[in-house]
Amino acid sequence: MLTLADQTFSSRLLLGTGKFSSRQALADAVKHSQTAMVTMALKRVDTADQDDDILAPLQECGVNLLPNTSGARTAEEAVFAAQLAREALGTSFLKLEIHPDPRYLMPDPVETLKAAEVLVKQGFHVLPYIHADPVICRRLEEAGCAAVMPLAAPIGSNLGLRTKDFIHIIIEGSNVPVIVDAGIGSPSDAAEAMEMGADAVLVNTAIAVAGDPAAMADAFRMAVIAGRQAYEAGLGGRQLVAEASSPLTSFLDLP
């Protein structure tokens, strides 16, 4: 079971809700993923806009909601967004994300740490989206974050575990759950992150833009379970030379 801030979750797969072609596609993916927590963003109400309400179907699925601060470019904006999010969704869980640059969406570590320090004091359970930097992850843990969410690759890139070596270091040193976020492109990426000892993964684009999002959600569900089970079972060590798995007796040698 995944534990975040004294709350346990039945799944180690967190699902992002962006980019789905329809409400129904999203609801189907949520069900097939068997996720226990999904992210949501905030937007200004546009009076001319027809309300594309996804909240009701998500609540029907019974999943926990994890609002994000996407759109915030500074700590100050993120703190304000967090307060709005808590009021809108009635949860203290928060995915803190501050990425001022729209091309690569790299998280701003200085602003993220500043915001985390403020938000923890205000009673938020802060899950910061951050670069796979063991030092900033440690600082965020010390600030009281409920988890750290290092990126595998740029958001929505589907590039996979490009930061693998650094995620290893983060997992080794972290006393809070490590949720690998962003860039996971395939179930094998998710399984690999879980085999490495990640506590959870957050997947959005890879499922939302798949040919069959529900089937892909199912594939990710199995991959996360398999990866976790492999980690808990203890993987065998690797080496460059062969080590026979059959007895090398010389029974074929003729006298």
């Binding site: 992002g16 809700t17 962006g18 980019k19 789905f20 999203l26 992210t39 949501m40 963003a41 905030l42 937007k43 200004r44 109400v45 309300d51 594309d52 996804i54 909240l55 909601l65 609002p67 994000n68 996407s70 709005l84 999010a85 809108a88 969704l89 958001i155 929505g156 962003a182 957050l202 959005n204 684009t205």
Partner: peptide, 10 residues
Amino acid sequence: ILIIRATAGG
């Protein structure tokens, strides 16, 4: 007045 709503997002 600022009015915001939860919407789809990662």
